[in-house]
């Protein structure tokens, strides 16, 4: 004959164990990003809540591709003709890293740096493009990442300030 109290205790202990076991790994997964597998294209640090390296979130191409994808058809003042750019909306990227700051500082491979205020992190706003006309961009072609605003569809994005924010050969972002 089984002791009912022992049964209840055991069940409870099992439940707690299961709950703890289940809950803890879930918490870790929500807070941190998976580490990049390929060549790191973009490093984000500063006021962010998601990391996959000490105080930083590093992204390879595959990680970027898993995020929300938007394609913008527009002309730019640096290229000829209408181009198609595909990439992660800046707002989605900032959400993905849990950015808390009011602006971000973007820096290029050639150390060109500019600030993009939080007001630009909106739907229909700029994207961090990783494809130009469906193809990855080399450094010679201002790749691998290029911040592109939808210049043609929104006239407010036709200005010197926006053009200066359209940073190419982007490789670092610091949220401030």
């Amino acid at each position: 004959m089984a002791n009912p109290a022992r049964h209840i205790f055991f069940a409870a202990a099992c439940a707690v164990a299961i709950a703890v076991t289940l809950f803890f790994p879930l918490r870790v997964a929500a807070q941190d990003l998976a580490p990049p597998q390929g060549e790191v294209l973009l490093t984000i640090n500063g006021a962010i809540s998601m990391h996959n390296d000490a105080e930083a979130a590093r992204f390879d191409r595959a990680m970027l591709e898993t995020l929300e994808t938007v394609t913008i058809e527009t002309s730019t003042i640096w290229t000829e003709g209408v181009q198609s750019f595909t990439g992660v909306p800046l707002v989605a990227l900032m959400q993905a890293v849990g950015a808390r700051g009011d602006s971000l500082r973007a820096t290029a491979i050639n150390d060109y740096a500019i600030e993009i205020p939080r007001s630009d992190w909106v739907e229909g706003g700029p994207i961090v493009a990783y494809l130009n006309n469906g193809k990855p961009m080399s450094v010679r072609e201002k790749g691998p990442l290029w911040v592109i605003y939808p210049y043609d569809t929104n006239p407010k994005y036709q200005g010197e300030v926006i053009y200066s924010r359209s940073i190419w050969q982007l490789d670092r972002i610091t949220v401030e």
Partner: peptide
């Protein structure tokens, strides 16, 4: 980088 700059200067509208 230099190549990219030159391309921009050559191609940009």
């Amino acid at each position: 980088i230099f190549y990219s700059r030159m391309t921009t200067l050559e191609r940009g509208t």
